[in-house]
Design a protein around this nucleic acid. Structure first.
Length: 586
RNA sequence: GCCCCGGUAGCUCAGUUGGAUAGAGCAAUAGCCUUCUAAGCUAUGGGUCAGGGGUUCGAAUCCUCUCCGGGGCGCCA
């Protein structure tokens, strides 16, 4: 609806520019907003106040000239100048009626747009290390990333959803070692499990499947495994050195082939678990991108070569450093360690280089806020490579802080003390979980009280919205019982019968939907949609309580059915974008 | 010490990128089911927008300083 008004203002500005009232050389940004209060009309523009300086005129005087210059339009019934110089527009009922019919005609496509048409965007999210099942901390990134991706798609972008699999590096070696040690335990060896190993039950399961496949064939005595290993921390040693020694020992005892097998068994079964978990959560990917493949394809070497060629790396203390301080980072960063191994950062440079090479117009990373310090160095690397770092948007999602019994819970994959995403979904349901995670803007810390989510799940706002949808469905179920039929065409002809203020407010709320979707998508703020849906449901419930839909007057009845059917449609569309179901009965 | 995020009603949070009288939910109080689902509706109370200074027609919103809370600052990933 906004698109119908903006040209009118542009035309008025053009007229005043031609008349010399406004300087002709300045481009004018047309600002048009929904009014907060219906008494101020439907839309308001602050144009006169913004331009009054350039016009050397009082805001209200300029507003009058602008209004006088507005072209005729059948969308607008009245234009008013108010307050310090606002220009308020009152829309014709016909404009709203046309919108209602558009909802019914377009169905699930209503609210989609083409503002992003022709633009491709890659969204990488979750990307949790495959060292354990997803926990509730990952859930927020999953729900947020998936919703941002869906929203961008809804406004016309071509979206590529991607999970970066950290299938290389020390954490994965620690997992492999943990799996092997559990296997040894199942073989009957006895020893103290390293304090730095992965202790979750799932590691036992993987160890068990290794045992099922090989029996005792891979068994080595605990004595051989632990001989001359740096003692663990509880034993007065160093837990990091302890686990590193164990990894090296296990690797040499097993041989490369069996070590790799153990490693991949851990990786594959956890990744499969994660994939399955996300799928059930309604989160799907176009690509699972392997970190290891970056090394194998030579992308890491190529990235380092390019940095060397452009003179942004140097050697110090046997290591290779990237001079990120040249690009505003607070200190330089190591890309190749003195032991010859490339760092995680080197992989990430190669990965982001790869993303841009694939030609996306925009690249979005959804990261936990704890990685915020990492943003400057990645952008620095892209700039150093000669790429356009401004194509990369890093969206930082603050932690969800878990509370149970009023106590803050520590989440640690290593210790195995965490609540999995699956447990959460089982307890509060997919819909509530998806909705809850995106209810707050991502920069906001989120208090996730498990007891509240579980014990009072009926008070979750999601039910309020779904209930509105179910109520409409229920009304339509009642139709035949009362001997009525819905004639949508007749309803369309009598929309002018919708004269109640509750109807008016509901219609206005519906008309906002496309604007909300667009704004939520372009700003990467799904919570705007969540809040909007609550307001829409509120308008509907109020209407429902105030008026009967299934009245004897068929013209009025059909018009009302058109209205509530459109409401049902918009709620379903909005919930769909949030990954939440819209049930017909509750 | 430096960096990021937050501070708005008793609690949890919105506030349309600087607009008109700062809004919801929960909690509290009082009402509404022989009528399409009461997981609903109506009404009431509740505020120094953390605090000071600045920018301008206009500030919860932008700038600056201070205070408070969370997180991050590795040749880990």
């Amino acid at each position: 609806m906004k698109q119908q008004l903006a040209p009118l203002l542009s035309a008025a500005v053009a007229t005043l520019q031609a008349d010399g009232v406004l300087p002709a050389d300045q481009p004018v940004d047309i600002q048009l907003e929904r009014t907060r209060d219906r008494k101020h009309g439907d839309f308001a523009s602050n144009l006169a106040m913004v331009l009054c300086k350039a016009a050397r005129s009082k805001p209200r005087d300029l507003a009058e000239k602008l209004v006088a210059a507005l072209p005729e339009s059948d969308v607008v019934t009245r234009v008013e100048i108010a307050g310090p110089g606002f220009i308020n527009f009152y829309l014709a009922p016909a404009a709203y009626h046309a919108m209602l019919q558009q909802v019914l005609a377009e169905g699930e496509k209503f609210g989609r747009s083409t503002v992003g048409a022709g633009k491709s965007v890659q969204v990488e999210f979750v990307s949790a290390n495959p060292t354990g099942p997803l926990h509730v901390g990952h859930g927020r990134g999953a729900a947020y990333g998936a919703t941002v991706a869906d929203l961008l798609e809804a406004v016309g972008h071509k979206v590529h959803r991607e999970y970066y699999v950290n299938d290389a590096g020390r954490q994965m070696d620690i997992l492999a070692a943990s799996v092997y040690l559990r296997y040894l335990d199942l073989c009957g060896e006895s020893f103290t499990f390293p304090s730095n190993g992965y202790k979750g039950d799932y590691v036992w399961d993987i160890g068990a499947s290794l045992h099922r496949k090989h029996g005792d064939a891979l068994r080595h005595s605990a004595e051989d495994v632990f001989r001359d290993i740096t003692p663990d921390e509880p034993a007065g040693g160093d837990k990091e050195a302890h686990i590193d020694d164990l990894i090296a020992r296990i690797r040499s005892l097993l041989g490369e082939e069996h070590y790799r097998e153990t490693f991949d068994l851990g990786l594959d079964s956890i990744l499969e678990n994660i994939r399955h978990d996300l799928e059930e959560f309604g989160v799907c990917y176009d690509e699972w991108f392997s970190e290891r493949s970056l090394t194998e394809s030579g992308a890491v070497d190529r990235a380092l070569e390019r940095l060397k060629a452009s003179g942004h790396v140097y050697e110090k203390g046997g290591a290779l450093w990237f001079r990120s301080t040249d690009f505003g980072d607070e200190k330089d960063r190591v890309v190749v360690r003195d032991n010859g191994q490339t760092t995680y950062f080197a992989s990430d440079i190669a990965y982001h280089m790869n993303k841009l090479e694939r030609g996306y117009d925009r690249v979005i990373d959804v990261w936990g806020a704890d990685h915020h310090g990492y943003v400057p160095r990645v952008k620095a690397a892209l700039t150093a490579l000669g790429d356009d770092a401004s194509k990369l948007d890093v969206l930082l999602v603050q932690f969800a802080i878990l509370y149970r019994g009023g106590e803050k819970m520590q989440m640690s994959t290593r210790s195995g003390e965490f609540v999995t995403l699956r447990e959460l979904r089982n307890e509060v349901g997919n819909d509530a979980a998806r909705f809850f995670y995106v209810m707050r803007k991502c920069e906001q810390h989120m208090d996730f009280d498990l007891d509240l989510a579980k014990s009072q799940s009926n008070e979750n706002p999601i039910y309020y919205i779904q209930y509105a949808h179910a109520r409409v469905a229920s009304v339509f179920r009642q139709l035949p019982e009362k001997g009525f039929e819905w004639n949508a065409d007749n309803g369309a002809e009598h929309l002018d019968r919708l004269t109640e203020s509750h109807e008016d407010q509901l219609i206005v709320a519906l008309s906002r939907y496309p604007e909300v979707v667009e704004s939520a998508a372009l700003n990467h703020e799904p919570h705007m949609l969540a809040h909007y849906l609550r307001e829409l449901a509120n308008e509907f419930h109020t209407y429902y309580n105030a008026h009967q839909f299934l009245v004897d007057d068929s013209d009025l009845r059909d018009a009302r059915l058109n209205l509530i059917q459109a409401t049902r449609q918009v709620i379903a569309n909005g919930l769909g974008l949030l990954g939440v179901s819209a049930p017909d009965s509750m």
